[in-house]
């Protein structure tokens, strides 16, 4: 693990410095989340940078996924979940009544833990989002959107000859990249990834990580991961959650080399979690 951290330090330090100057894309302030009476998130404030990868790490059940789902209001679909606090995206309160969660989710894409392509063709998987949002004026334009999304997701060369094949016929890693392409197709600004590699083998994982690194140029990415190596490899900022509280948040390099909190230290060295 040490080796990874060193690799990371060597390769990404210059880019890191640039990102520091970037503006904050999503600003979360004093977030509390309750499931019925049980509080899952305690007063978390987390400013998330644009054009960077922010990883959320922590032991199981620490609330990382719950927090992630606040950002595109997916918690609204869980009846017993209640979110308190403010989340600003480009300065606008996303929980405001004037913001429709449907529109918010077209700007905040999401990739889930298990690849979940629709049981439709590859083409229809990608085209679904643009269609319902009316992003394409005609068939030709839609073809363009599908192609560019697949290119960005690094899947074009593998599937360009069989766009009518069902999305579920792809391998696990391809399916996950298809899901990423599907998220990209509606041209979001933020992409949320909830343990996108946990169901994949190491080679597919490497492809996804590469992809995340490329996507960083254009999007604000928030990724929940259980793998500390992955967090170290792909992210510029890391937030460590423990028991629903944000323990530490900062540059990935610093979190992994010189954590301030002893709990972070214990977690990244594998003493618990």
């Amino acid at each position: 693990m040490d080796g990874n951290v060193e690799d990371f330090t060597e390769t990404t330090t210059p880019r890191q410095a640039e990102n520091m100057a970037e503006m904050i894309k999503v600003d979360c302030r004093n977030i509390d989340v309750f499931y019925d009476d049980k509080q899952a998130i305690f007063d978390v404030s987390l400013p998330i940078q644009d054009r960077a990868v922010t990883s959320l790490i922590g032991p199981s059940g620490c609330g990382k996924s719950t927090f992630l789902r606040c950002i595109n209001r997916m918690n609204d679909t869980i009846e017993i979940a209640k979110v308190r606090g403010k989340i600003y995206m480009d300065g606008a309160d996303i929980n405001d009544h004037s913001i429709d969660p449907v529109l918010l989710r077209s700007r905040v894409g999401m990739v889930f833990q298990k690849p979940n392509p629709f049981p439709k063709s590859i083409y229809d998987n990608i085209a679904y989002g643009p269609r319902i949002h009316g992003l394409a004026a005609g068939k030709h334009e839609l073809d363009g959107i599908v192609e560019s999304a697949l290119i960005k997701a690094g899947l074009w060369d593998e599937v360009k000859d069989r766009l009518t094949a069902p999305g579920t016929s792809l391998s696990g890693g391809q399916q996950q990249r298809l899901c990423i392409a599907r998220a990209i197709a509606v041209s979001p600004e933020v992409i949320l990834m909830d343990e996108p590699c946990s169901a994949l083998d190491p080679i597919a994982t490497a492809r996804i990580e590469e992809l995340i690194d490329e996507l960083r140029e254009r999007y604000c990415i928030v990724i929940v991961t259980h793998s500390m190596q992955q967090a170290a490899r792909v992210s510029q900022r890391t937030a460590f959650f423990h028991l629903g509280k944000l323990v530490e948040y900062g540059d990935t390099e610093r979190i992994f080399t010189n954590p301030e909190d002893s709990r972070t230290q214990d977690y990244i060295t594998g003493r618990f979690g």
Binding site: T77, S106, V111, F118, V186
Partner: peptide, 23 residues
């Protein structure tokens, strides 16, 4: 119907009704 399909539809910005009737 697996809930992941509902999540997928909602995740790309489909409304509840769209997710139900399309997927």
């Amino acid at each position: 119907v697996p809930p992941s399909i509902r999540d997928a539809a909602l995740g790309v910005g489909a409304s509840k009704t769209q997710s139900v009737f399309h997927h």
